[in-house]
């Protein structure tokens, strides 16, 4: 593993989250990624991991989540995949961000944050896995 590539394979267990965020943070530092792209990618991994674990395995089966991060030129690439039930998060409707306080709910907010803060996003179902590919600009 070089300083510009990270490849993590984790069980679908929320207990992994603390260790996961530390490892991503260490990678970002080693790869010299600025605080804003580092934060945006960290948020994407965090939101996707939570959603995958919370909703992807309703029968409680053991699963595997794979996170690949790569720095290439002026972009940061993230490939997040899980073997949970098929689900395209980007097909879900955007949450209500305009309503009065009483009407606000935060369902769908995580995905909204991720898709707004990345440069590009795509979803595919490949070999029984949900595969999400995102890029983040390194400038800013």
């Amino acid at each position: 593993m070089t300083d510009t590539e990270l490849d993590l394979r984790l069980p679908n267990d929320l207990a992994e989250l603390d260790g996961l965020s530390s490892r991503i943070e260490a990678f970002m530092e080693a790869a010299g990624i600025g605080p804003t792209p580092a934060y945006r990618l960290q948020l994407a991994v965090d939101e996707f991991f939570n959603n995958a674990v919370d909703y992807g395995y309703p029968d409680g089966r053991a699963g595997e989540i794979v996170i690949e991060v790569r720095r290439e030129g002026d972009k940061l690439h993230l490939v997040f995949s899980d073997d949970g039930d098929p689900f395209d998060p980007f097909a879900a409707p955007a949450p209500d961000l305009e309503g009065a306080l009483e009407e606000r709910h935060v369902g769908g907010l995580g995905v909204h944050l991720v898709r707004t803060l990345c440069d590009s996003f795509a979803y595919a179902r490949e070999k029984d896995r949900n595969v999400k590919r995102l890029t983040f600009a390194l400038a800013g």
Binding site: S21, L43, E47, L101, R104, V106, L113
Partner: peptide, 19 residues
């Protein structure tokens, strides 16, 4: 140093409670 949608949910809940 960091907040996710889970943290925002708590802030929203507290705002509703206080208001």
């Amino acid at each position: 140093t960091y907040i996710s949608s889970a943290g925002l949910r708590v802030v929203l809940k507290a705002t509703k409670m206080v208001r």
